[in-house]
Simulated assay, not measured.
Amino acid sequence: MLLLLHVAYYMVCFMEGDIAIVPADVTSCIGLTAYTFSILMLYYVIFQIGHLWTVKLLVAPRPYHVINKSFLFRYVKHPNYYLNIIPELCGLALIFHSWYTLCIGLPVYLIPLIIRIRQEEQVMRTEFDNY
């Protein structure tokens, strides 16, 4: 569901931006900055998690799956969502001035994202005593 919503969000942003035909301005630059930040965070999260990074909700066998206690993961729960996906979607909407997508699409996207975060929390609490 999240993958479908992600693709749909991108498509609608592009379409709304194409219809509006707004030239690049300060808002677009702020969006590009947020989008760039999100991509950098994605690469950092993948680097930190390594072979465990996946879009699927699964726990690898014990020797391979340990809780990441690096600085980022210690202070930000679910950095892939909060520092990658949400800034990515906000940034994309700002780049294209896709206000309807931002105001309607983002809250719709957040519903399954919150469900996903809760599912991950449950799995982690079940599998790891020290989570």
Rank of each mutant, 00 (worst) to 15 (best):
M1H: 07
E120L: 01
A8C: 03
A60S: 08
L40A: 12
V108P: 06
I30N: 08
S38T: 13
K69L: 04
L4E: 09
A20L: 15
G50Q: 00
Y64I: 15
A20C: 06
H65M: 03
F96G: 08
R62S: 08
I95E: 07
F47G: 04
V7E: 10
T101P: 00
V22R: 15
F14W: 14
I49Y: 07
E121H: 10
E121F: 07
P63S: 02
K56V: 02
F96S: 08
E16H: 09
L94T: 00
V55A: 13
Q122E: 14
C29Y: 09
S98D: 00
P61D: 12
I114F: 13
P63L: 03
L83T: 00
T101I: 04
I46E: 05
A34K: 12
R125A: 10
R62V: 09
F71S: 04
I30L: 14
A24V: 14
Y9L: 04
G50I: 01
T54V: 09
V66F: 10
L113D: 07
L58T: 12
F73R: 00
P112L: 03
F37R: 04
C103E: 07
L58M: 15
E120R: 00
R118G: 05
G91P: 02
M15R: 14
I49R: 10
L83K: 03
R118L: 15
F14Y: 13
L113P: 08
K69H: 06
H78M: 05
P23K: 08
L52T: 01
P112Q: 05
I19N: 04
M15G: 11
T33Q: 02
C90M: 12
C29E: 12
Y9N: 02
C29I: 14
L92K: 11
N84I: 02
I85W: 00
S70N: 15
E121N: 13
H6W: 09
L3C: 07
A8W: 06
A60I: 00
H78P: 02
C103L: 14
L58R: 13
G50F: 01
A60R: 01
L110N: 07
T27W: 04
Q119T: 12
M11N: 12
P107K: 05
T54F: 01
T27K: 08
V12C: 14
L32T: 11
G50L: 03
Y82T: 09
I111V: 15
E88L: 13
Y9W: 01
F128G: 02
Y75D: 03
P87T: 02
H65Q: 08
P23S: 11
L42K: 14
P63H: 13
M11F: 15
Y81I: 02
L92N: 06
P23Y: 09
M41D: 04
I115V: 08
C29T: 12
F71M: 00
R125P: 02
G50Y: 09
I30H: 10
